[in-house]
Write a protein that binds this DNA or RNA. Structure first.
Lengths: 342, 342
DNA sequence: TAATTTAGTGTAAGCGCTTACATTTTTTTA
DNA sequence: TAAAAAAATGTAAGCGCTTACACTAAATTA
């Protein structure tokens, strides 16, 4: 086993140099700073490059030049519309600027995340995109020591050495809860994603509690159920929440996928949404408009976040800019799933 | 501009060697074939590795060892649940086998795709995952010359030098159309993704035409509208399709996202689905179950495809296995959006 | 005990590129 | 036309790693 594949050797800089009858330095210059080479030799070299289908060896280049033009991103999973969407935008900006993106996913596991971060670094990433703030502080120190620009996305941080492009998860949920309280909901339950290693999820629960507190309701009285990121799991979890007494008049969900599951479960139980029970989401992904009733949710500018994250990083790497802390606005999108308390 | 960031130098193999008072070769062996080193030195070395937070330089390693344990994937876009899902599975298998995935997206543009392929190769990808068969044949030749294992996913190919893990887009759509014809639909319209550089989309239209032909209907009479992959665009496109006379009794959609847009548009126009008009999808993503009426669609095992693609590639790289052609089964999922013709 | 193996390490030659510096050629200026 | 400046090119020293080969020390065998 572990037989090396019969990979033909790729042509090297030297091959091109020979073919074009110049030195390797000249070929290298043709590729990296074409304006420092005369028009005639440039043509000859480019011809040879085409002829041989030459493509520079990345490892060698990185080794010699000590920069890679590569930006790493470690996300929990691609199988989640919000990250997929954000990353696509992130990559777009990078490609437009002649850079390359490297992605790795951590499956929400801090240990895997740490490994992936190291992998990306050893691959020469010039900068890193990380999701949220929940990780061993040692990692941030480590990254700072290395002088590696890092942007935290989907959350905000006050750490001065880190950039962030995010939004206030606590505040956004608080506002939504406040709106619900104004509609007369007192028995609110929360259907959350797992919070243990997920600051976004945790902060959303906190935001809801905060709103309750402000209105004189004991925040610890709010039932919270945590479940997996899937419609199916949300359906089950919704059941346990609804069976409580008094039955909640509103189930706030940590994201739209959970909310979609909740809506389906409610329908299956013969409950009218929002007549009998209200449901809210978070994120405003496509799902939110497709399900009926359409979800009242918090709109998060995922694409914009990805785009900005790339720009911030490019700025730090290319222009030595300082870390930036960008807090994007979110807003409540009122659709049909939140109504007055029955 | 273009100032180099103040990146501190990472520790090198040599630093570790010095700290552990051994040669660089020994350190290298500790990392790559630990059983060839005595227990005591191994401990000393590992201690030094930890101490210095050493992580090997990937470029240098690739350069010296001529393999990277890296698998590249070029997909149209991550912002499409089917690819996101498949890729996540693909990566999972790779990580479980100690390999790394590199992703790049092409935005459905053949030229960008070609560039991305080259980028991945120059980064030392040991193998490549590509979507579909639509590309300059020269690229396949080029990859073959290099002896680079390649797997085509989401479609099948008969090219002997390429592996594929896909399904029969023509046949799947044909079956679905046949079922609709049996339900009495004669005026069928097709809402498709852009077909110009997308064999999957094209083959789905072909499958529908084939079914019509078999039942004695002129396949060229079927109206086809192509549109962007988004609910919004599908809504508009649906309008132009429905305004035709005779009004189609069924609009087959090239994928579930388009179908979701179609269903919404129909509802907005006061048309009952499937009472007044039937709609079908393709892919069976979550959306299909969430929208009402739930979509009758073709189930495609996206995750399984990603998983298998990784396994096929690993086999070729690690065990020198021959290319494999895997055709996965799809099946029609009957839900509510397809009914008898009115 | 001497002669072989075997296990554990070290030495040093690249891998394919970039780039500081040296050299040659061309252009400009006096 | 000669000298100086500018432009184009070449030379060669690494970048951080792996690995063939050489070597030493310990374990085995006769």
């Amino acid at each position: 086993m572990d037989v090396t594949p019969p990979k033909n050797d790729l042509p090297t800089l030297e091959d091109v140099a020979k073919a074009a009858r110049v030195s390797t330095a000249t070929v290298s210059r043709c590729l990296n700073s074409p304006d420092r080479v005369s028009e005639s030799t440039k043509q000859r070299v480019m011809e040879a490059v085409r002829e041989l289908k030459y493509s520079p060896n990345f490892g060698a280049r990185a080794l010699a030049a000590k920069r890679t033009n590569t930006y790493g991103a470690v996300i929990p999973t691609m199988d989640n519309a919000i990250f997929a969407r954000g990353l696509q935008a992130f990559q777009q900006v990078l490609v437009d600027n002649g850079a390359t993106m490297l992605v790795a996913s951590s499956a929400y596991d801090p240990e895997i995340e740490e490994n992936q971060i190291k992998t990306l670094i050893s691959r020469g990433a010039d900068a890193l995109l990380l999701i949220g703030t929940d990780r061993d502080p040692g990692i941030h120190e480590f990254l700072e020591e290395r002088g590696l620009p890092v942007v935290i996305a989907w959350a905000c941080t006050t750490e001065a050495t880190l950039s962030c492009v995010g939004f206030d998860n606590v505040e956004a949920t608080r506002q939504l809860a406040l709106k619900a309280l104004d509609l007369g909901h007192h028995d609110i339950a929360f259907l959350s994603a797992f919070t243990r290693t997920n600051d976004r999820a945790r902060n959303r629960v906190i935001g809801a509690r905060k709103a309750l507190q402000e209105r004189g309701i004991d925040p610890s009285s709010m039932p919270v159920v945590e479940t997996k990121y899937s419609i199916r799991s949300a359906r089950e979890a919704f059941g346990t929440l609804v069976r409580r007494s008094p039955r909640p008049t509103l189930v706030m969900c940590g994201n739209d996928v959970l909310a979609a599951g909740a809506v389906q479960a409610a329908r299956d139980m013969g409950l009218d949404v929002p007549g009998d029970i209200s449901i809210t989401g978070f994120d405003d992904i496509e799902l939110a408009t497709v399900i009926s009733p359409a979800l009242t949710t918090v709109h998060v500018p995922h694409r914009k976040m990805g785009r900005l994250a790339a720009e911030v990083l490019l700025d730090q790497v290319r222009h030595n800019a300082s870390p930036r802390h960008v807090t994007l606005d979110t807003h409540i999108v009122e659709r049909a799933s939140l109504g007055p308390a029955p």
